[in-house]
Amino acid sequence: MIRFENVSMEYRNGTAAVNDVTLTVEDGEFVFLVGHSGAGKTTLTKLMIAEERVSSGKLEVNGFRLDKIHSWKIPALRRTMGVVFQDFKLFDKMTVYENVAFAMRVVGAKPSVIKKRVPFFLDVVGLSHKADSFPTELSGGEKQRVAFARALVNNPDTVIADEPTGNVDTDLTEDIMELLLKINKLGKTVIVVTHDMGIVQSYRKRVVRIENGRIVSDKTGGDFE
């Protein structure tokens, strides 16, 4: 579960990026986080993964109190989250298999476990046949799928996708969204950060809209006004 209680966050220069946000996302929920550029969506996700620290208020993510978390506990928090970046952040010198395995390797997973889980998640995203390909040989949609496999492979409780359809063709958007719904059906909490109002309306899920660091609406059914 993710719970913001009157959370504010200011940068060192005094700019308020998040202002008195109160929000709860239950386990297994699917939430769209929408808003214009600079509205505070990305800062909100950075707060959830402790990439930025809370200035005031209370923030709890997957059992961790982030407003008072010790830095040595942050890796444990992040292992409960899978993050999919807009620019994929794949490593061009690694194959698809190695990119996914890398996410497991860096948290100290055993090679035997890696050998079992990586093919499974490549299968989940439909890329088993591309295991030995390099990212430069993949389409935008395929790269995004690799990024999803990598986010899922450590079995996180929550998946955060930052503009997952931002770098793919329109006809692939539906595939990506279907994949996110599939992930949600696996019991994962899914938070999709987007400014693509088309997909928000199509999928009729909970929509949290942010403006100037504040939540201005929180509705279900694809309504974001």
């Binding site: 990439e51 040595w72 292992r79 890398f102 996410a103 860096v106 948290v107 100290g108 450590n154």
Partner: peptide
């Protein structure tokens, strides 16, 4: 640096990085 950022966000400990 991208690898390091990714490692951190995956939950790699400082010693691992």
């Amino acid at each position: 640096r991208n690898e390091i950022t990714f490692m951190r966000l995956c939950g790699a400990t400082k010693s691992m990085i």
